[in-house]
Design a protein around this nucleic acid. Structure first.
Length: 326
DNA sequence: TATACGTGGTT
DNA sequence: TAACCAAGTAT
């Protein structure tokens, strides 16, 4: 993996954040581009939030990117541009929890620290046959104690990477390869044939459906109007098309601020988008104009072209529409 | 303690 | 196709 070449605490940090709830294959190209543009903490600390978000566009959980920038700025000032080594100091940085702190300390600095990410949780819960809900606080506490207890006496960086890799490649969620596991003789889940039922699966609840109405205004030079999302809900700080919660509001806006005489085409585009906690139907009105028209846009709205996208963040559906219709 | 927070790949 | 993930943290 690219983050395992010329390992530094900085690269461990960035990769750990990118890999949170994210597939390895998805994170790789993002990591390579990010490290090329922001090779060290000072470069990152001096960047704008818009640009950092542009390098995160499509990766999701954008709070991670905003927190990486905030943390870089704090590290520059409070820790002389070096990631701290202690868990206590690391977890003061936004976006770094106990497990990521443990990974930075052990893999990045080679010092003793337990971690408890999804892979390690799965390995430990099977090895020690923990059949309860792993999210219960009492079980979380037990798992942290076990993670600490099984640490070796040395080679903490090798050990931490190894137990994560064991979870990712051998002790997989589905169809674990117990035959090739170096710990299979001691694993209680293997002994009692419980690898399918451990860890316990969550019962998930139904996702609500929300609707959103976008107005995609494009001029003859291929420029398009975007507005920046507020500091609440999903996609905070990212740029979307002009957004309305009711179709009537979009019609009203269109009739009042767009000059119909300049209109070339008027198309509809529907996109179904799925979040982890709700589904979203996006109804987009695509308007193309042949010349300058009324460009009265609101406070947080601006006109951009494709070249501007490297300096601002856009959520996946916006990126898709730009690629498709502009 | 439960919920918010994204996305693309796999089945 | 809809469901189900995949290296968590913040509130």
């Amino acid at each position: 993996m690219p983050w395992q070449q010329d390992i530094t605490p900085y690269k461990v940090w960035i990769s750990e954040i990118m890999l949170q709830q994210t597939q390895v294959s998805t994170a790789i190209p993002y990591f390579l581009k990010f490290i090329k543009r922001f090779p060290d903490i000072d470069t990152l600390a001096d960047a704008s939030e818009d640009e950092v978000l542009s390098y995160w566009s499509g990766l999701g959980y954008y709070t991670r990117a905003r927190n990486i920038l905030k943390s870089a700025q704090a590290i520059k000032i409070e820790f002389k541009s070096n990631l701290p080594k202690s868990i206590e100091e690391l977890v003061t940085l936004p976006g770094i929890g106990r497990s990521t702190a443990g990974a930075i300390r052990s893999i990045g600095y080679g010092l003793k620290a337990p971690i408890l990410d999804g892979n390690v949780k799965r390995v430990l819960s099977r090895y020690f046959k923990i059949e309860e809900d792993l999210n219960k606080s009492s079980i979380q506490k037990e798992l942290w104690l076990l993670s600490e207890k099984v640490l070796p006496k040395s080679n903490f960086n090798v050990y931490t990477q190894a137990i994560m890799d064991l979870g990712a490649l051998v002790c997989k969620r589905k169809n674990p390869d117990c035959a090739s596991c170096p710990q299979n003789k001691y694993c209680l889940a293997n002994k009692y044939n419980l690898t399918e039922s451990i860890p316990l699966k969550q019962n998930k609840k139904e996702k609500p459906l929300k609707n959103l109405y976008w107005l995609v205004a494009i001029d003859q030079k291929g420029r398009f109007a975007l507005q920046q999302k507020e500091r609440n809900g999903v996609w905070q700080g990212l740029w979307t098309f002009l957004e309305f919660e009711e179709i009537e509001l979009r019609e009203h806006y269109y009739k009042n601020f767009m000059e119909e005489s300049a209109l070339i085409s008027r198309d509809k585009l529907k996109i179904k988008h799925s979040f982890s906690h709700y589904n979203l139907d996006i109804d987009s009105l695509i308007l193309k104009f042949d010349s300058n028209f009324s460009k009265k846009v609101g406070n947080n709205q601006m006109w951009f072209d494709k070249n501007d996208l490297k300096s601002l963040g856009t959520p996946a559906p916006v990126t898709k529409i730009i690629e498709k219709v502009i």
